[in-house]
């Protein structure tokens, strides 16, 4: 194992930029690399992505590996696992970190099995054990009802990290680093799955993950109509509308509004949960909010154990009065 060295970050790209998760991973990777006294490297995989190598350096990488190939235009397990296996064999990092995104969720396990090592997914904390120098991987389990710390004794130790769990470094454009190109060497005929079409279901207005205020509705809202009232409040607060899983499953709102373990991870300044019971899987997605407000008719609902402020009552009575008072306060 001695020849493995350094921390490697899989940097995701979206709309021609490093995604927020990538800068978060660089921030977290920088700390791990410094604790080990080793290098922090990033890898960029895709088509036409080379120009972003400088970005990764500005956010903390010492070295950036670039695999740029038209066949890598879309994420697809076959090609990405094989490219990343090649990168790992060349770079030989002790640690490989990816984001817990629709790509990372798929790529990390595939790669771990290919390389004969183990991955820990959805970690919220990563640290180096001062004695063994192994990485402690902390992740919520049982839907957030407990947390587990895992270690892996084979290299690379692979982890995916939950969005917003780590902080990016300040951008430093004066930082120097090396950029190294690695060939993809893909055989197009060995790719057994193909992306035919990509459909974006983004709703209009402020993106949920970026909103400072989120008004979220649950099963207690009772239908699509009720969500109009949440939208009105969100608009006044210049925020976004979110939801627990049932409103998405029932088609009251778009699936992309789901907050939680298997939905979006959000960390707004203000999170208003209306008619949401506060299941652990939902709280997983919003526990990073600075202020959680609960409006629920059941005083025993778990959401009151998570919330900082609340009202016990029927939202149909509470919300209109709350909305008009908020409008009044903001107009002052």
């Amino acid at each position: 194992m001695a020849e493995y060295k350094g921390v490697l970050i899989y940097a995701e790209i979206g709309e021609g930029k490093l995604k927020a998760i990538s800068t978060e991973l660089l921030g977290c990777g920088r700390k791990l690399a410094d604790d080990l006294g080793q290098e922090l490297c990033a890898v960029l995989v895709g088509s036409g992505v080379s120009s972003l190598a400088r970005e990764a350096i500005a956010f903390g990488a010492d070295k950036v590996y670039v695999v740029d190939d038209p066949l890598l235009e879309d994420y697809q397990a076959d090609s990405y696992v094989s490219v990343m296996a090649k990168v790992v064999k060349q770079v030989m990092p002790q640690i490989l970190i990816l984001g817990q995104t629709s790509i990372g969720r798929d790529l990390a396990p595939g790669l771990a099995f290919r390389l004969g090592t183990a991955a820990a997914t959805d970690c919220i904390e990563l640290a180096i054990d001062p004695d063994s120098k192994l990485m402690w991987q902390t992740k919520p389990v049982y839907g957030g009802n407990a947390q587990a710390i895992f270690t892996c004794q084979s290299y690379p130790q692979i982890a995916t990290v939950r969005a917003k769990a780590m902080s990016p470094l300040e951008r430093d454009d004066s930082k120097q680093g090396e950029v190294i190109t690695i060939g993809a060497d893909l055989d197009a005929s060995a790719i057994r799955a193909r992306v035919l079409e990509k459909v974006r279901e983004e709703v209009e207005g402020i993106k949920l993950e970026e909103a400072e205020v989120i008004v979220s509705g649950g099963r207690g809202i009772g239908g699509a109509d009720g969500f109009k009232q949440l939208e009105e409040l969100a608009k006044i607060l210049k925020g976004a509308v979110g939801a627990s899983r049932p409103p998405c499953d029932n088609g009251w709102v778009a699936d992309s509004l789901q907050v939680g373990l298997t939905g979006k991870i959000v960390a707004p300044n203000l999170y208003i949960a209306v008619g949401i019971s506060g299941a652990s899987q939902h709280i997983s997605g919003c526990s990073g909010a600075k202020n959680i407000v609960a409006i629920n008719k059941d005083p025993e609902a778990n959401i009151f154990r998570q919330a900082h402020f609340g009202v016990v009552g029927d939202w149909k009575k509470v919300l209109p009065a709350f909305t008009s008072k908020v409008r009044e306060l903001l107009a002052e």
């Binding site: 629709s102 799955a193 193909r194 992306v195 035919l196 079409e197 990509k198």
Partner: peptide, 12 residues
């Protein structure tokens, strides 16, 4: 399902 919608994938 992807982070901002979905994609159609064809697999053998």
């Amino acid at each position: 399902v992807t982070d901002d919608g979905y994609e159609v994938v064809e697999v053998s």
